[in-house]
Computed example of a mutant assay.
Amino acid sequence: MPINLTILGSGSAVPVLHRGVTAQYLNFNERRILIDCGEGTQLQMRKFKVKFQRIQMIFISHLHGDHYFGIFGLLTSMSLWGRTQELAIYGPPELEEIIRHNFKLAQVYLSYQLNFYPVDVKEKTRIFEDNSIEVFAFPLKHRIKCHGFLFQEKEKEYRVNPEKIEKYKLSLTEILSAKRGEDVKRINVTLPFKDLVFPKEKLKSYAYCTDTKFYTKLPDWIKGADLLYHEATFTQEHLDRAKATGHSTAAQAAEIASQAQVGQLLLGHFSSRYKNIDPLLEEAKSIFPSVSCVKDGDVFIVN
């Protein structure tokens, strides 16, 4: 199954007419995931035809408003539209108190259950897994505590070649052994499992690195990701401003992508000072050629 990523907001700090603040919708092996939820996210979902009632999990990177102020309206709208499915929220430990206190004061009673999972890690740590995907969180270097996320396909069993099943008259027990990567041992012969199975496909992955300074640990944590989103709030011309605010330049994002040997780099979280983002793109391309500057509504697919 493909990774399907929709950019709902590509800007930073405040929404502007042509660029919303941070939010992304990720369909990964049919897991429907919202990553960050800046102001106006539900309107962006309607604009770009994302069905928010299908969301199963929300991941919030940190508690700056341009990354979570939209969650109150979104959760309320889900209830007004009759949602009954439980919703999982992964984010800063304080987020649950903020949401529940807000709803208590406003006397908002949701029609569905919220399940909160606090994220507060010092190294790359797995925070979710099921039979298809796993999600890792890792710290970023921002002005307040902030986390990035790696969404990764789980290791699968081998697929046994039907022609080999017929050729060697494999029993069910032998088929299961080959699927686990075990040689099939018979009385007079051993059948190497690699001769019985198809090669495994590369596991797909998506890394999300929002608000952060240049951080040398990131390449090890996201090594080989198919798709990397890395904030690029400024160009190198405004490097001092990037350092002061806990952000990265396009060149620094490209350096992380190069060191991590990712497949494709997506730049976003642009400062509103840039009406034209071509300078950020050119700056990054001089270091890492496979790069795009995202726009609201862009869709990226990894097959």
Rank of each mutant, 00 (worst) to 15 (best):
L176V: 09
F72E: 01
T233I: 05
S292E: 10
R143Y: 10
D66I: 05
L228C: 02
D240E: 15
Q53W: 02
E96K: 13
W81D: 13
L281M: 11
P219C: 10
L114V: 12
W81P: 00
W221S: 09
L5Y: 01
T41F: 02
R159A: 14
R159N: 08
D120Q: 15
D298I: 09
Q42D: 09
F149S: 00
Q264V: 10
Q107L: 10
A254S: 03
F72Y: 10
R31H: 14
L17M: 11
S248F: 00
I33W: 00
P93L: 08
E157I: 08
F149M: 08
F128Q: 09
E39H: 11
G297K: 06
V16I: 14
V294P: 06
S248T: 14
P2Q: 09
Y229E: 02
P279W: 05
G9E: 07
K204A: 07
V121P: 06
Q236F: 13
E166Y: 09
Q264D: 01
V262F: 00
T233N: 05
L74Y: 04
N29H: 13
L140S: 01
Y117H: 15
P93I: 12
Q44V: 05
V119K: 03
V291L: 04
Q113D: 12
K145A: 15
S10N: 11
S272Y: 08
L176A: 15
K154A: 12
L5N: 04
D66K: 07
L87K: 03
K200A: 12
D278V: 15
N29V: 04
N4A: 04
P192E: 02
A225Q: 03
P199T: 05
Y117P: 09
I187F: 10
Q152W: 06
P2W: 00
E155S: 14
F116S: 05
L267Y: 08
G38M: 07
K51Q: 11
Q252T: 09
E283P: 05
G91R: 06
V197E: 02
V291D: 02
I71R: 06
T235E: 10
K156C: 02
E155Y: 06
A250C: 08
I98R: 07
L267G: 00
A260M: 05
Q56N: 12
A253T: 01
L170W: 00
L280P: 00
F136S: 12
F214A: 12
L26T: 07
K122G: 11
K124G: 08
R19C: 06
T41I: 04
M1H: 14
L105T: 14
V184A: 03
L172T: 05
S61Q: 06
Q42S: 12
S132G: 08
F128T: 11
P279K: 05
K167L: 14
S61V: 07
T235P: 06
I3M: 08
T84V: 13
Y229D: 02
F116D: 03
A23F: 01
T210D: 13
D226C: 02
